[in-house]
Write a protein that binds this DNA or RNA. Structure first.
Length: 869
RNA sequence: GCCGGGGUGGCGGAAUCGGUAGACGCAGCGGACUCAAAAUCCGCCGCCGCAAGGUGUGAGGGUUCGAGUCCCUCCCCCGGCACCA
């Protein structure tokens, strides 16, 4: 055995053994218990970042641990290969997005392999390959036929200088990131997926997801946002034509408090009012410059303008003024809201600002309504009753809603309605590097889906990106097409699909990535039965990706693939890892934009306590500003390259550091310190095994009948096995598993094992330690295991089993408290009854109690005794 | 703004069901080995205090024999907010 731990020698050697034995391949074996362990696939941005290393190490630990429990493990990997960064890179470097992407995939795959992840590479897929996206197009045509995909107008960010649609990320303080032009809101036709048709089912499904973190279920529940309210109409007459202005409210009980209604700038009433009023037209124009992100809407100054138009109150027939509001959006709900300033905080502020009437229609006992100041009880549903509301006076919230809804129904001006916050999913993107939407626009036949025999609609890979519009719209060879129905010349859709579509079903395709003539085959029935056993990915995906994936399994189920069973819920167990965060550094350009610098380009200064204080850019020696801790990301350019870590210390150190530095759910603060410690531990482990092996390996101890110090050490071993097993399996908390093994090794080194019995116990401990660490540091464990048990392969070994006999203990130590304060310990037989414990505790506490009267004795079995005096 | 999470020594973190706060590691300090350094090994290490003891888990209050853990109010940080992935 080598005396020194040299990771550069043992890591490639271990990987060669695994490759030769096909140790990482998942076998389609329907008779064996399966464990499908899935990590969120990466976007091939160039090189791995720390978040990937963390995510895939967690996945690999679980995959290897479950393999050691005898399960048939599938751990696949692929590439979320479509997306905007490839187009940005193309602009910057003049490389076509396809070439850039595939070059990144090659590099990142090598990096993943060098980390020793037990990934079944025979199942690798990339979403940008026609073999993959053709089935997405196929599914699109089926969903289009079923009406689950439809077309309507939707708002986008329009850069008037670059004449292109911008992603939210590309809009910085209301301006285009490249042109600096003020971004406008523009309504364009887009395809939508009817996720709202599944809102009820997606909500109900959350109840069953016991293997999901409760906070993720809560977030999805709130996102779907089911509320029961009343859809009601305000009648009006315009140019002699009668019409209805529809709104939705959850507070129909306050209907008599309505003093105005507000409509969106794009609402027909607003547009009508603008015709003869340049001020309103100017205001509507101003609204076009507002963003439409929810956060912008919620925080911006609420502005409005009277249109001069009036509608009739549905119950009183009073005239109600119509305002245009910049906070009302056409695409959400009805594009109009009723305003009750007295009982809605936003309406209250709006009414105060514009001097609109505030009419109290709710009161609560002991509370006084004060026109000058908003108080939280004004919006209270629980304690309030109707006032100033005629026949509804005295009714509670629920009763009033019921009464008013049925009165409105009688007038055909309203009904009770369940509404969801969830909106249909806009899937059209005016971008090149994505899956082409399989639609042909024919002047006569309308939107015609591309027939199966013309699929896939291939995305041309040799293109020039200019930053202005999609290159597809400039390629007649792409967009010129014959209508599949009438044969006349027609125009192919040049928008592509949102990349969230690809990531909504890739996990099903891993079961059968080589299937040529169908989306999926029966191998899905084995691997995905009951859902994927474990899904691991960033908490930032808690809502969108995870909701879309849940939606998609239901879509595919309902489209129906013969002979294939799709689980409703794709992910049985979910682990949301915390982010890897690091400080971010930037400079502001004169126009206020921030330029972010990578720590690798900087010299960072810190104080004597190790806290970072300042940084300078190596290129010019000038200072940069130190921002806060941010998620490692492209946008903040604060990623630390894991490659340097792997090159210097090896894959096992990188993996161990990642698992030991923080529990998986928590965010992990990157720091260079600590890596050394992980490396030191591996060297120490190597040395300990070397010292044992160089005296000759022996047969592992199997008996609990040992002298006291050895018995204690062996108890520690089996307690550790139980703990580590629980940490890997139930708790999924790997930092404490490592800590437990470290503690065991500390005890091992403090015990004299120079007898035959001792050496045999040493053998038992070291074999167990190496196998317990195998999921985290497989290379060193593979190598050391082969030294401890020549001819045996750790990759096929089972996880150590607890010997219950070793756990038995004759006496235990209990904590003694007096009035809840720690006052020492005492020993007692492990089978002592309550009376014995109490008297032993009183004896131990004699000095401290003295004359004081004992009021109460609390005994917590196995833990402590608290004497109250 | 709304939804979700978090705040524990100089630092990362542990304390799993309300029961010894600070496991394990990093940094630091002292020592051994060495010509020396690195590596390694041994010891110390929340704060105040010579000690006895007191005190301590973002701040304030509450429940309890007992609170990092439960309840209320507040502050700060992070994630998401529908076109970043």
């Amino acid at each position: 055995m080598q005396e020194k731990y040299i990771h550069a020698d043992i890591e490639p050697a271990a990987q060669t053994i695994w490759r030769q034995n096909a140790a990482d391949c998942a076998i389609d074996a329907p008779d064996r218990p399966k464990y499908y362990c899935l990590s969120m696939f990466p976007y091939p941005s160039g090189k791995l970042h720390m978040g990937h290393v963390r995510n895939y190490t967690i996945g690999d630990v679980l995959a290897r641990f479950n393999r050691m429990l005898g399960k048939n493990v599938l751990q696949p990997m692929g590439w979320d290969a479509f997306g905007m960064p490839a187009e940005n890179a193309a602009l910057a470097n003049r490389i076509p997005p396809a070439a850039w992407t595939y070059q990144n995939i090659d590099h990142m795959k090598k990096q993943l392999q060098s980390l020793g992840f037990s990934i079944d590479w025979t199942r690798e897929l990339a979403t940008s390959k026609p073999e993959y996206y053709r089935w997405e197009q196929w599914l699109f045509t089926r969903l289009f036929a079923k009406g689950l995909i439809y077309k309507k107008l939707g708002a986008v960010n329009w850069d008037p200088v670059d004449e292109t649609v911008l992603a939210n990320e590309q809009v910085i303080d209301g301006r285009g990131w490249r042109s600096g032009a003020l971004v406008e809101k523009r309504e364009i036709p887009m395809y939508y997926m009817k996720i709202t048709a599944y809102a009820e089912e997606l909500l109900a499904g959350l109840e069953q997801l016991e293997g999901w973190p409760p906070e993720v279920r809560q977030m999805q529940k709130n996102w779907i946002g089911k509320s029961v309210g009343v859809r009601l109409a305000f009648p009006y007459e315009l140019d002699g034509r009668k019409d209805l202005l529809w709104t939705f409210t959850t507070r129909a009980d306050t209907l008599l408090g309505v003093t105005f209604v507000a409509v969106a700038a794009e609402h027909p009433l607003a547009i009508h009012a603008a015709k003869n009023n340049p001020e309103i037209a100017a205001f509507i124009e101003e609204c076009r410059l507002c963003g439409f992100a929810e956060a912008d809407l919620a925080t911006m100054e609420k502005k409005g303008m009277p249109t001069g138009l009036f509608v009739r109150h549905p119950l009183t027939n009073d005239a109600v003024p119509v305002w245009v509001g910049n906070y009302v959006l056409m695409g959400y709900g009805e594009g109009a809201v009723m305003a009750v300033p007295a009982h809605d905080e936003r309406d209250f502020a709006f009414a105060k600002k514009y001097g609109l009437p505030i009419r109290q229609v709710i009161s609560a006992a002991d509370e006084t309504f004060d026109l000058d100041e908003w108080q939280d009880w004004y919006a209270d549903k629980i304690h309030a009753v109707c006032v100033n509301s005629g026949k509804y006076d005295g009714l509670s919230h629920e009763a009033a809603v019921e009464e008013i809804a049925s009165d409105l129904a009688r007038l055909s001006l309203g009904e009770k309605k369940t509404q969801f916050r969830l909106r249909d999913w806009g899937i059209s993107r005016q971008r090149y590097w994505g899956c082409p939407i399989p639609i042909i626009h024919c002047e006569q036949c309308g939107d015609v889906p591309v027939p199966d025999d013309q699929l896939p609609v291939l995305l041309p890979e040799e293109v020039t990106i200019t930053g202005a519009g999609s290159p597809l719209a400039r390629m007649p060879e792409f967009f010129e097409a014959a209508c599949p129905k009438c044969g006349k010349s027609a125009r192919r859709e040049t928008d592509t699909l949102d990349t969230f579509v690809e990531s909504s079903w890739y996990f099903l395709r891993y079961a059968c990535p080589d299937k040529q003539d169908a989306m999926l085959d029966e191998r899905v029935n084995y691997w995905c039965k009951g859902g994927i056993d474990q899904y691991i990915g960033g908490i930032e995906h808690a809502i969108l990706h995870l909701l879309y994936a849940r939606f998609f399994t239901r879509l595919i189920r309902d489209v129906g693939l013969p002979g294939i069973e799709i689980p409703d819920e794709p992910f049985r167990n979910l682990l949301t890892q915390g982010m890897v965060v690091a400080p971010a550094f930037f400079r502001k350009t004169p126009d206020g934009k921030k330029t972010w610098f990578n720590p690798a380009e900087l010299t960072i200064k810190s104080d004597e306590r190790g806290r970072l204080t300042a940084a300078t850019l190596n290129a010019d020696g000038e200072p940069v500003e130190v921002g806060g801790m941010e998620k490692m990301s492209k946008s903040h350019n604060n990623g630390v390259d894991p490659q340097a870590l792997i090159d210097r210390y090896g894959a096992d150190t990188a993996r161990l550091f990642m698992m030991f530095a923080a529990p998986p759910l928590q965010s992990l603060e990157w720091s260079d310190a600590g890596v050394e410690g992980a490396y030191r531990f591996l060297r120490r482990l190597w040395r300990i095994v070397y010292e044992h092996v160089s005296q000759g390996v022996t047969r592992a101890n199997e008996t609990a009948d040992l002298p006291a110090p050895l018995k204690d050490l062996r108890r520690k071993l089996h307690q550790t096995i139980a703990k580590v097993n629980d940490d890997y399996g139930r708790r999924q908390q790997f930092n404490t598993a490592v800590a437990a093994v470290m503690e065991l090794l500390n005890a091992y080194e403090k015990t004299n094992l120079d007898t035959a019995e001792g050496r045999s116990l040493a053998q038992e401990i070291l074999e167990s330690v190496v196998l317990m660490l195998f999921p985290i540091v497989p290379h060193i464990a593979q190598t050391l295991h082969a030294e401890l048990k020549p001819g045996e392969d750790a990759a096929r070994a089972r996880f150590p089993v607890v010997d219950e006999a070793a756990l038995a203990q004759e006496t235990i130590s209990l904590v003694l408290q007096i009035n809840g304060k720690l006052r020492g310990n005492f020993q007692i037989g492990s089978d002592a009854d309550r009376e014995t414990i109490e008297s032993a505790a009183l004896a131990a506490a004699e000095n401290a109690i003295k004359e004081k009267a004992v009021k109460k004795i609390i005994v917590v079995p196995g833990r402590l005794v608290n004497i109250v005096v």
